[in-house]
Amino acid sequence: MADLSKVGTEYSPIIWEVERGKIKELTKAIGDPNPVYLDKEAAIAEGYKDSPAPPTFLTVPMLWSDKMPAIINDLKINFMMVLHGEEEYEYYRQIYPGDIITGTPKVTSIEEKESKSGSKMDMVTLEVLYKNQRGEDVAKSRSLIIERK
């Protein structure tokens, strides 16, 4: 089961350079034709500085940085029993190509719950506050990771 003593643990930061091609790749994988994510000129015409990162982009630094598996290991969670329960983002500023974002992951809660069928689960909440290269807050992600037992 998840290591309950880890509540409040802050992990070493994810440092991630945002590439234009990665924004395009994620947008195309989703199949979103919205030109603001694919074309800088279209984004500028809509009042952006450049093509902004789409709403679920922060999954990219989290997963490509290998941070998520490292955290799951540290929490002593059985990876084979993990479910992604919830995901939430708060947006403070746009993320643009060329930005270098730094995200600090923190375990904010671990709770044991019992499902209606009586099986036990650990619910781990992980928050990551992302800042840009100017030290400005850009977004916060909150992930609920469920370990079935």
Binding site: G85, E87, E88, Q94
Partner: peptide, 12 residues
């Protein structure tokens, strides 16, 4: 538009 979005969350 993305620039107006403040919060977005889902339960799977």
């Amino acid at each position: 538009p993305k620039k107006y979005l403040k919060k977005f969350g889902v339960r799977f």
